[in-house]
Design a binder for these strands. Structure first.
Length: 463
RNA sequence: UCCUCGGUAGCUCAGCGGUAGAGCGGUCGGCUGUUAACCGAUUGGUCGUAGGUUCGAAUCCCACCCGAGGAGCCA
């Protein structure tokens, strides 16, 4: 008989089964003659209630040691619970304490804590109900992403974390160097001499794996990246991290319509998977964090996303009775308030906006006929805003070269990217999804720092 | 980076010119098949930091640090 997980026992165990569990004490309630100890092992939101009879050896001594936070191993017999609130409980025969937790200094109490405070103890917060549920849902989202793409025959590719191409134009970059800051080599003109650096030129942490994903899509047809990306932007908001994970599918022989369809199917799949696999956690969020998340999930799974062009979006915004801080006019980039109006007020569900003006979008997006707009696509979600951004890529060499020049990027540095258009080019498309924003959207958590185990934000890298 | 609000006990907060408070937690005791247990007692603070105004500052002024919400940038 080995150790069993609490989730399994709560679901499957029957009275008279002998089991062993290992976990951490959440609370202890002492009564005359016996005590209740709630043990959690991370496998589920619910704890297993352990009944500790005063007859067991060393009872008094043990009781002093099993404060909130202590780690224990309990062997006993499953019995039907006499009390309300749980189907079964564990009547302990033996209890071993692995490590005590001093009640006077252990920061987690039985009552609720503010997320702000929990962030200051990121090494312990995973032991709380909410954060525990967040990371189980996060895991389920990651599993769902892989399952979705693998079942469709997409190849998971590992795009580089260090890159020397500074051309995605997506925010500030973190430099990667092996130069000695106390003795930085300089050129004759006084510039930093990167020829003496590790890669012989400036290098950075990646901001996106998209260009590499395009490379791989030109060999494997359908691929996706799923890995960390970095932005050195001094963003202090509840939606930004300096280190976050991105999912970026890329499909050869695919146009904007196919891209848009995949994005919608993808989001529906993830929501359904999480609802099916983490029902307890999702109910917990719906009860304590945001009472609308189950309805939102249902809305996403069962309704067609709204689909409009940028031009239509502008027209809808101009007709809106709502007063916007930023005036609406064809050519502007949509502001947070505009996106929120479309997704939350007007359609009340995700909206896919396509064909944005080329001036406000990246160089690699395919120029539409007419030359004013590009085949871009943003999925705007209620409360979160832009959750997916994608496009059909420019596959025509001459058009792409011109667009690169217009955007002020050195064409030579992208020689390998342009080679894809020289040799066997095909229409292709893809999108990027911020993984943490997905988890935020899913759980209703308002601050992105609470959906990643160890958030990296300006001035914060303690853990 | 900008705007707004905030920083007082381990946590959540009240006090907003007259010298430090509550609830929760912790500790001790009581009681009870308990489940955010309950009841009683008790413990606990250089009031973010540094200046200034004042007879007197947690309270008013200034600078800085840190946090939250919103904006920008974006995913």
């Amino acid at each position: 008989m080995g150790t069993r997980r609490v989730a399994d026992i709560l679901k499957n165990a029957q009275p008279d089964e002998k089991v062993t569990i290992k976990g951490w004490v959440r609370t202890k309630r002492e009564l005359k003659g016996f005590s209740f100890v709630e043990v959690n092992d991370g496998s589920s939101l619910a704890n297993l209630q352990v009944v500790l009879d005063s007859q067991i050896p060393e009872y008094e001594n043990l009781l002093k040691k099993i404060n909130t936070g202590a780690s224990v191993e309990v062997t006993g017999v499953v019995v039907a619970s006499q009390g309300k609130g749980q189907r079964i409980e564990l009547k302990a025969n033996t209890l071993t304490v692995y490590g005590e937790a001093d009640a006077e200094t252990y920061p987690l109490q039985k009552k609720r804590h503010s997320f702000e405070f929990l962030r200051t103890i990121s090494h312990l917060r995973a032991r709380t109900n909410t954060i525990g549920s967040v990371f189980r849902v996060r895991n389920a989202c990651a599993t769902a992403i892989h399952k979705f793409f693998q079942d469709k025959g997409f190849l998971w590719i590992h795009s580089p974390i260090i890159t020397a191409s500074d051309c995605e134009g997506a925010g500030e970059l973190f430099s990667v160097t092996s130069l000695d800051f106390k003795n930085i080599p300089k050129t004759e003109t006084g510039e930093i001499d990167y020829s003496q650096d590790f890669f012989g030129k400036p290098a950075y942490l990646t901001v996106s794996g998209q260009l590499q994903a395009e490379v791989m899509a030109m060999a494997f047809q359908n691929v996706y990246t799923f890995g960390p990306t970095f932005r050195a932007e001094n963003s202090n908001t509840s939606r930004h991290l300096a280190e976050f994970w991105m999912v970026e599918p890329e499909m050869a022989f695919c146009d904007l319509e196919g891209d848009r369809n995949l994005a919608e199917e993808f989001l529906k799949y993830i929501f359904k998977y999480v609802l099916d696999n983490c029902p307890e956690d999702m109910e917990f969020f719906n009860k304590w964090i945001d009472k609308s998340i189950l309805a939102t999930a249902d809305n996403i799974i069962n309704n067609e996303f709204a689909r409009i062009t940028y031009t239509e979006a502008i027209s809808l915004l101009e007709k809106a009775k709502k007063k916007f801080e930023f005036p609406v006019e064809w050519g502007i980039d949509l502001q947070s308030e505009h996106e929120r109006y479309l997704a939350e007020d007007l359609f009340k569900k995700p909206v896919i906006v396509t064909n944005y003006p080329k001036e406000i979008k990246a160089f690699y997006m395919r120029l539409d006929d007419g030359g004013k707009t590009v085949a871009a696509m943003d999925v705007l979600a209620p409360k979160i805003g832009e959750i997916i951004g994608g496009s059909q890529r420019e596959e025509r060499l001459d058009v792409l070269e011109k667009r690169i020049q217009e955007s002020g990027i050195e064409v030579d540095s992208l020689w390998w990217y342009l080679d894809l258009r020289r040799y066997g080019t095909v229409p292709h498309a893809g999108f990027g999804l911020g993984f943490e924003r997905l988890v935020q959207f899913m759980t209703g958590m308002t601050n992105i720092r609470d959906v990643v185990p160890f958030p990296r934000t300006p001035l914060n890298a303690e853990f």
